[in-house]
Design a protein around this nucleic acid. Structure first.
Lengths: 141, 141
DNA sequence: TACATAACGCAATAATGTTGCATTTTATTA
DNA sequence: TAATAAAATGCAACATTATTGCGTTATGTA
C-alpha cells in the first residue's frame, strides 16, 4: 500500500491537510472498510464532524476511496484499488459483512460469471454482498 | 398476489388495522420495492410517521415484507415471496437499483452459482445488487 | 513573506429514527 | 350487542445523522 498520502492528494488536485491525511491513514490501516461512525469516533476532536463528511465526499468524488453501504444502511469507506480512477470506478464490488463485529471486508479477488438480467434493463455495476461471520469472530468463539 | 391482507395479518397473529392494510395495499401494488420516504409521502396524514416505522418493523419481523437497503442507504420494502417464513427468510436476494427513478426491483428468479469465499468465513446469506437503468426509464429516453 | 484559494470550524437547520405514555382500536366473549 | 383486555396508534419529546452558510484558518505558490 502506497503511504505517500500527501502525494496522492496532490495528484488529484487536493490540498494535503492534516485532517485528510489522518483520515487516509486510518482507512488504509484496516483490512476492512471502516464505517463513518467508527471513523468519527476515532478522529474524535481532531476533525470536526462536518469536515469529515466533506472529506469523505471529496475522496469519493475523486476516486480515492469508495463507499459501501452495509446491511444497516451505514456508509463504510475503503481505499480504492489502483483499478479505480476519477471517472471510472471498478464496476464490480464484492463485500463480506460480518454480523458479529460489523466489519465490511472487500473481496476484490472474486470473479462472478455473467448474470442474466431481464430484457430492457441496462447494467452499469454489480455488487455482491455476503453476510455471515468473519474469520476473526469465528476463531474467538 | 393474495389480496386478503386481513387474513394474512391474522395468520401471523397481528391485528388487521386500517393502517396496516393500507401499507400492505401500497406495497403490493408495486412492481418494485418501495422506499420508506415514498411510502411516508403516500400515506400522508393517514398514518403517523412513528406508526409507519413500527408497522414496517413488525412486518419485517413477522416475515410479511422484507427490507432492502438501496445504494443510498435508504430502506426499501417489498412483499415477501411465499418462500419466506417467520423464522427463515429466503437467503438469497437479488435486486436491481435504477439510478434514474430510484426504484428497486426484486429479481427473485435469478440463480447464482456457488461462490468461493475465503477460509474461515461463514456465509449466512448472499445479496446481489445490480445498478443501472430499468426498462421503464430506458423506454422513456 | 505575501497572496489567492481551498479547506476548515462553528452555528443553525433539516432530515431521519427512537422512546414513553395516554388514548383509541381491535378481537373476543359474555 | 355491550363489556373487556390487549394490541396498536398518535403525540410529544428527544436522539442521531446529515446538510448549508459563512467567517476564519491553512495550504501551496509566486
Amino acid at each position: 500500500m502506497n503511504r505517500d498520502f500527501a502525494g496522492l492528494l496532490h495528484q488529484t488536485g487536493l490540498k494535503a491537510t492534516h485532517s485528510r491525511i489522518s483520515v487516509l491513514e486510518i482507512i488504509a490501516d484496516r483490512d476492512a472498510a471502516i464505517s463513518q461512525p467508527t471513523l468519527e469516533k476515532m478522529m474524535g476532536d481532531e476533525v470536526d464532524r462536518v469536515t469529515l463528511y466533506r472529506i469523505l465526499k471529496t475522496f469519493e468524488e475523486k476516486g480515492i476511496v469508495h463507499k459501501v453501504i452495509d446491511l444497516h444502511g451505514t456508509a463504510n469507506y475503503a481505499i480504492c484499488s489502483s483499478q479505480c480512477s476519477v471517472h471510472e470506478h471498478h464496476d464490480e464490488h464484492f463485500h463480506f459483512n460480518c454480523t458479529n463485529c460489523d466489519k465490511v471486508y472487500c473481496l476484490n479477488d472474486l470473479h462472478l460469471p455473467a448474470i442474466q438480467i431481464p430484457q430492457g434493463f441496462v447494467t452499469s455495476s454489480v455488487s455482491l454482498s455476503i453476510t455471515g461471520v468473519c474469520k476473526n469472530c469465528n476463531q474467538q468463539s
